[in-house]
Nucleic acid binder design. Sequence first.
DNA 1: TGATTCGTTGCAACCGGTTGCAAAGTCCGG
DNA 2: CCGGACTTTGCAACCGGTTGCAACGAATCA
Lengths: 330, 330
Amino acid sequence: MAVTLKDVALRAGVSRSAVSRTFTDGASVSARTREAVERVAAELGYAPSALASALSTGRTKLIGLVSSNFHNPIFLEIFDLFTRGLQDRGLRPLLVNLSGETDPQASVRMLRQYSVDGVIVASSTLPPSFARAFKDAGLPVVHSFGRRTTKPETHVVGIDNVECGRMAARTLLARDYRTIAFLGGPESASSTQDRLTGFREGAGPLVVPSIFAASYSFEAGRAAMQTLLSWGPPAQAYFCGDDVLSIGAISALRDAGHDVPTDVGVIGLNDMEIAGWANIDLTTIHQPVADIIAASIELVVSTVTAPDCLPEARLFSCHIVERGTLRPLP
Amino acid sequence: MAVTLKDVALRAGVSRSAVSRTFTDGASVSARTREAVERVAAELGYAPSALASALSTGRTKLIGLVSSNFHNPIFLEIFDLFTRGLQDRGLRPLLVNLSGETDPQASVRMLRQYSVDGVIVASSTLPPSFARAFKDAGLPVVHSFGRRTTKPETHVVGIDNVECGRMAARTLLARDYRTIAFLGGPESASSTQDRLTGFREGAGPLVVPSIFAASYSFEAGRAAMQTLLSWGPPAQAYFCGDDVLSIGAISALRDAGHDVPTDVGVIGLNDMEIAGWANIDLTTIHQPVADIIAASIELVVSTVTAPDCLPEARLFSCHIVERGTLRPLP
DNA sequence: TGATTCGTTGCAACCGGTTGCAAAGTCCGG
DNA sequence: CCGGACTTTGCAACCGGTTGCAACGAATCA
């Protein structure tokens, strides 16, 4: 059925090794042989089997891309960048959708079966132990959008969430908001806790009761804000743990008759594409997604070649993107 | 390094075949042997190599998932459903990001190299010839969100775009809109043409000049509407070829001082998650994405086992989801 | 007890490549 | 024209499983 190395060798009148060698660069083949093989290969439409080659070389050029959040539009941007970045390096993404699963074992098993060269865990909500499980199974792993710890167990690429919290606080204070609150993502996620820590650190006594949304989704953000409003009048401004939460929160505020930004200010985090849509126009903290992904890919690739390098944390700095959901500086 | 079938066989005191057979169901192994093998396998943490097995069986359980639109949030839902649906059947999605590429050859090559069992092309903008290229290369293929043709060359799963156009027209006419227009997706896509055809068929002389957006994106929808507005006063209502285009169009309308739905009505197509967000609240034609994807997976799986079945077109019917961007029925 | 049947097992070849090694071929200077 | 150095080539073993075939043992039946 499929044309194999043997077919090409036979037809070109050379050995199988010769054919193999013309398709692996750095191997020693004469120009004459190469030319003959390439001609026959083209004639026959030969494409070397990545599987067979993987079997002997031990490299599949497959990278497991593990993710659980398929309801936050930022992840579409993340998938786009990851798939493109991997493809550009001749690697292929094997997608794993956790869909609620929190035990890494099934994914570990599956990715080991396919002998992926490395794994990228893209999630800000999974605990470090999740990525750790891949490392324990002998797979190079990078936790993207993960949290820096004092002693990282795996490679981590992300942002300094504490600093983001501080930055949000500073930004709100500079605009004379006097009561401010945090509307965070899932409480159990360490990124949420870090953001809150930084926020409290930066705003001190001005922080009024905060809340945690059940997930990073519009509905969760909206519901959280509705709960806040049921407790009493809103704070003067909110720092939301994510853009999609912000959009949900704003929707609840406006429905309750509070104008944004006139009555209440909102600042998000991520700067996803939608945040820039003219009808959303969200002021937010830009997370350098492209940099994080480029670094993640680079890190996983380098770990494949040098598996024993020490776990490394790479953090990128964020910046404010001014749009229309905070009142102007005084 | 990795523990192989041989290691398990040695340790369990049986032949390699015995081990292999305990892991392939339907094979003949005694309870005693199976038990011994399973115990040793668990001890050693053995996981059979999918690659090696693929090499002999000819099945990788890999499905190529080819897509080009990473800027329309509906695709996040699509990826979620595809990856989950495939995983549930023990298949793995190998993601291919076309990112602008329109020549299928590179993807065909790559997916053949990895010996994927089948390919799903998920796109409403790629021509039938794209999916065709995979078929010509001997790969089972399904074109999801594709267009039905009188004589389909590959399996196609999608909706009846002409009927959607008619449905949009009927809906607008029923609300007494007297001048209506189409704001479509890329002009070259046959789905766009079909929608326009149906729309014209349903609305006849009421259709005023229409326009095609450059892509399925917010900015493209907004820009297209701005162009329309520069030509003169808006139509009474618009049928947009996609939700994200609708949202862009509405944003342009509102910025120009036209209230939606009081002054101008808008109806979209897709019913993506965002369309239901309270601050968007878009009336739209629901495309049964989940059904389309389930059918696509089923079709590609059945084609893998019976490669010679005739190309089939499965179309699902759509329905209107009433929200807040059209005026109520008189 | 001997013949027959059936389930279990191991051998060995195969899937489609890669690669160390040694033989063969090429090119050079002397 | 010869010896040495370097390049090209094929052989054969290997990567980690699968599977047809024949041998084996146990159970069944006469």
